[in-house]
């Protein structure tokens, strides 16, 4: 694995498009950033939910493991892995308590799908940035 590729992967995941920007693919970087930002933003405005890793904060290492089995619905861990793909936007949503999910709204499900979809797309974007950095792709 090449260092340049790994740096692009990590930066691309943290900030959508940054992995391409550091490799001078500015147009692609801008389009990726706008797409992921717009999808996440629309999802949040629609009342979508950003799923956290834990329902309750862990107090010790053992509880980190135990919490995996104490969720309301174990399937939400899959939603968490999709959401965390948003990188910076996921961190901001946790920091400012965005994405609590407004279940009473008709747009809740679609909003949640927008946020999860943006996260999954950003994983692909980060992997694409790795491929360029590692010289597997132009």
């Amino acid at each position: 694995m090449k260092i340049k590729g790994i740096v692009a992967l990590v930066l691309g995941w943290a900030v959508p498009g940054l992995g391409h920007a550091i490799q001078k693919k500015y147009l692609r970087a801008a389009l990726f950033f706008v797409s992921i930002f717009a999808m996440t933003g629309i999802g949040l405005v629609m009342g979508g939910k950003v799923y956290p890793m834990y329902l309750e904060p862990p107090h010790n290492v053992f509880q980190v493991f135990l919490n995996l089995f104490r969720k309301e619905n174990p399937l939400t861990i899959l939603a968490f892995f999709a959401d965390i793909g948003n990188g910076l936007f996921y961190a901001l949503s946790r920091l400012f308590a965005w994405g609590g999910g407004e279940l009473e709204r008709a747009t809740f499900e679609f909003g949640t799908a927008y946020i999860a979809g943006a996260g999954l797309l950003n994983f692909l974007i980060a992997i694409d940035a790795y491929d360029i950095g590692a010289g597997k792709k132009k």
């Binding site: 389009l31 797409s35 717009a38 999808m39 629309i42 799908a113 692909l124």
Partner: peptide, 10 residues
């Protein structure tokens, strides 16, 4: 709109 963004990125 969702399809538009996904198509663009893909």
């Amino acid at each position: 709109v969702y399809a538009l963004f996904v198509a663009l990125v893909m």
